[in-house]
Structures are given as C-alpha cells and as structure tokens.
C-alpha cells in the first residue's frame, strides 16, 4: 500500500465500512487525530444510534453541537447526532418561519413522511446538515470547524446515501429540496470530501470494500483511504509452525519447563493448535492485503486493542492515525 501524503486534507471526512468493522470507533479516532494544535473538528453521526456518546462515555447526544473531547495538542472535538426530523424543522423555520405550521405538519404526519418515507429527503437533510457545518464561518470569516468527520451508513448503502442528487433531483425537480440537493452534491463531489472505507483483513469486508470503491467511483464520489482496522501482530508464520510440529515438541516442552511453566507436556498440543490457526489466519490476511492493494487506495492500519476500545484506546488509535499521516 502506498504512502498517503495528501497535499490537501479534505475538510469533510466520511467514514463508512461494513457492519462490525468498527467504523464509529475509527471515525471518532479520526476526529481526535485531526484535532491537532488548536484545530477543531466536528464528529457527526447520522443513524441515530448514539454510538459516539457510548464511545466517549457521555450521555446521549442532543441535536446540538457539543464539545466531547480535547486532544493532546489542545485541539477540540465537538459531536452532533443529526436528526432528520429536527433538521427539517430547523430548515423550515430558517427559510419559511414556520414555527407553528411546522408543528401542524408534524401532526398530520407530513414531517414523518418527508423524513422517513419520501425517498431521499432524509439523506439530503442529513448530508445537508454536515455540509452546512463544513461551510460555516465565524464572524471573522474563518471556518468554525477545520474538519467534519461523519460516521456514515455502512458500505452497502454509502453510495446511495451520498449520491442524493441522482435520487432526489429526479423526484424534486424544483424547489428548495432540489436546490439543497444540488448544493450538497457540489460539496460531496469536490476534493473537499473524502470517503474512507473501514475494513478488516477478512474476505467479506474486503470484498465489500472493493464493491463500495467501484460504486463510489462510478458515482463520481471521491474515495479516500482504506482503513484496515483491528490488525493483529503476526507472531508466527506457517513455516515456523510446521517446523515446531515436526520433532520439536519435546524441545518446546523442555523450554516451557525452563521458562517456569509447569505441566508443559500437556500444553504443547493446544499451543501448537493455536499457532496453526494463527498461521492460517496470517496467510488469509496476506491474501486480503493483496486484494486491497489492487484497489490502489491509500491505507491506514489500526492495531487490535486486546482490551477493547475505551476512551484511552480511542486516543491510542488517534495517535496511530496521526503517525500514519492523518491530518498532516
């Protein structure tokens, strides 16, 4: 995998990935990594799962930008759980001053219709809010957030989610939703945006990454990096295991005893079995790495945290991403 050293780091970093690959964790770590030296990042979630709050061990996020972490260099991470319904009501209020009418619309189910059933409207509202945060400036004309990191829907749905233009423009050919979709698409298809795909070194996630990359590219959406998560160290390979199994069992038993492990004889077989499984996995991972290399993406790699991901683990992953060039 080639070295990732972008001249320009996109300001909207979208993190997708197959379910179970840890995309929320990676998005959070990336938001922390980008918040260096007084920089400010906004981490947004769009699926109402409150995954960010759980990760940062805070209470459920309201529909409000809230500081949730400070990075080592004094940067700040804010978080926002975008809610389509609230975004629509805000939007109506902003453009039509529809306070009461908004409530009436809600009562008859029109808001529900627009945010959950009307095709694509929900996605425009969600991505629209994220793009608004990307473009927002303070009174001095500086960007309020240096970076916006989105914990996005999984790989299988990411292209449709981001490609709101195609979905909505065909339906709403005029009007604010149409205009909103156009404005959102301009940001999403520009170098301002990078869509990263989190994967594991396993067959199905890698396959899904390959499919996702093809779909994103076909839709003209900017593909960022493959982020290989939960990488475990390779301690022994197949040759070593084969060698160990062939006539070294006795020597290994002795070495175990010498190292202070009692009952070594009974342990050799299970230890060697574990080693054989490990070697098999190493081989499979090698194949999957090759498959990822074919995609010609930049790549980050994050280690498996054996203790699971807690707050300190998150900082550790952020450091890892920084080391590998994120945000530089």
């Amino acid at each position: 995998m080639r070295l990732v050293r972008l001249e320009y780091v996109s300001r909207l970093q979208v993190v997708s990935g197959k379910g179970g690959t840890g995309k929320t964790t990676v998005a959070a770590a990336l938001a922390l990594a980008l918040a260096t030296e007084g920089k400010r990042t906004l981490l947004v979630e769009v699926e109402g799962r409150q995954g960010i709050a759980q990760l940062f061990e805070t209470e459920a996020l309201p529909y409000e930008e809230r500081k949730i972490a400070v990075s080592s260099g004094g940067g700040e991470v804010f978080a926002l759980a975008i809610d389509a319904e609230r975004a629509l009501l805000d939007y109506l209020q902003m453009f039509y001053k529809l306070g009461g009418a908004g409530r009436a619309l809600k009562k008859i189910g029109a808001i529900d219709f627009a945010t959950t059933i009307a095709p694509g409207v929900r996605d425009v509202l969600l991505t629209g809010k994220a793009c608004e945060a990307v473009r927002r400036r303070d009174k001095q004309g500086r960007f309020v957030y240096d970076y916006v990191v989105m914990d996005a829907p999984p790989t299988g749905r990411i292209t449709r989610f981001l490609n709101v233009n195609d979905e909505v423009a065909g339906l709403a050919r005029i009007g604010p939703i149409h205009n909103q979709a156009q404005a959102v698409m301009r940001v999403l298809k520009s170098p301002e945006t990078a869509v990263h795909l989190v994967t594991l070194l396993e067959e199905m996630p890698v396959q899904e990454t390959a499919d996702g990359v093809a779909e994103l590219r076909a839709a003209g959406l900017p593909v960022g990096n493959a982020i290989v998560n939960m990488v475990r160290p390779h301690l022994l390979d197949e040759d070593a295991v084969r060698d160990a199994e062939n006539g070294r069992r006795e020597a290994i038993t002795k070495a175990l005893t010498a190292a202070g492990v009692s009952g070594g004889a009974a342990l050799v077989t299970p230890l060697l079995e574990q080693a054989a499984e490990h070697a098999q996995r190493v081989e499979l991972e090698r194949e999957q790495r090759r498959a990822l290399n074919v995609l010609e993406l930049g790549a980050y790699e994050l280690p498996m945290l054996t203790e699971g991901v807690d707050l300190s683990g998150l900082y550790q992953l952020a450091k890892e991403l920084r080391k590998q060039g994120a945000g530089s």
Binding site: L235, L236, D239, A240, D243, I252, K254
Partner: peptide, 23 residues
C-alpha cells in the same frame, strides 16, 4: 516479528507460542 522458521531457536519459537497464547 514474523521470523522465518529456519533460523528460530526453540526458545524463540516457544516464546512466540506463549505470546500468541497470551493474546
């Protein structure tokens, strides 16, 4: 860390098995 088998001492090999087990 993925040291090829040929040059591994039994100690190294055993230490590898133990680290794998610890993981």
């Amino acid at each position: 860390q993925s040291v090829a088998a040929a040059g591994q001492t039994t100690q190294q090999m055993t230490a590898g098995l133990l680290r794998l087990h610890a993981e």
